[in-house]
Computed example of a mutant assay.
Amino acid sequence: MGVYSDWNNRATVWLQKTPGRRFRIGLLAATVVTYPVGSILINGPLSKFTFPKRHSIEKLPESLARLADQEYRRFLEKENRIPKDAVINHHIQSTFEDEDTIASGSLGIRTGLNIAVPFYARFQSTENALEYFREKYADTMDFLSEKVRVPWSSGEPSSSELAESYVLSENALRFLFLRDLYAHDGYASLAQRSISWATWTSFTSIFTYWLHSKTKLGGGTAMSFAVIYTVFVGAAYYANKQWYLLYRYLSDVHADAEAARTSFDHAEGGKEYYWKMLKRNRIYRELKPSLFTKVTATGDVRGIATPIIVRYDHLKDVNAEDDELRQVINMDD
Rank of each mutant, 00 (worst) to 15 (best):
N9T: 13
W14S: 08
L27R: 13
A30I: 04
S47C: 07
K48E: 11
E58L: 10
K59V: 08
E62D: 11
E62Y: 03
A65K: 07
D69W: 13
D69H: 13
E71T: 07
Y72W: 11
Y72P: 12
Y72E: 12
R73S: 06
L76R: 03
R81Q: 04
K84I: 05
F96N: 07
E97L: 02
D98A: 13
D100V: 07
G105H: 07
G105Q: 09
R110H: 11
G112S: 02
A121V: 15
S125V: 11
S125W: 12
T126E: 06
A129H: 08
Y132T: 05
D139E: 15
T140D: 06
M141G: 05
M141V: 15
F143W: 04
E146I: 07
R149V: 04
V150M: 05
G155V: 07
G155N: 03
E156T: 15
S160I: 13
S160N: 10
L162R: 02
L168G: 09
R174V: 10
F177M: 05
L178C: 00
R179I: 03
D180Y: 06
Y182W: 03
Y182C: 00
D185W: 01
L190C: 05
R193G: 10
S194P: 01
I195H: 05
A198R: 10
T201M: 05
W210G: 06
G220Y: 08
F225T: 01
Q242L: 14
Y244N: 06
L246P: 07
L246E: 14
R248F: 02
S251I: 09
H254W: 11
H254Y: 15
D256C: 06
H266Y: 11
E268C: 14
G269V: 12
G269K: 09
R282L: 12
R282S: 12
I283N: 04
K288N: 12
P289W: 03
K294N: 11
V295P: 03
H314G: 07
E321Q: 14
N330Q: 14
D333A: 10
D333I: 08
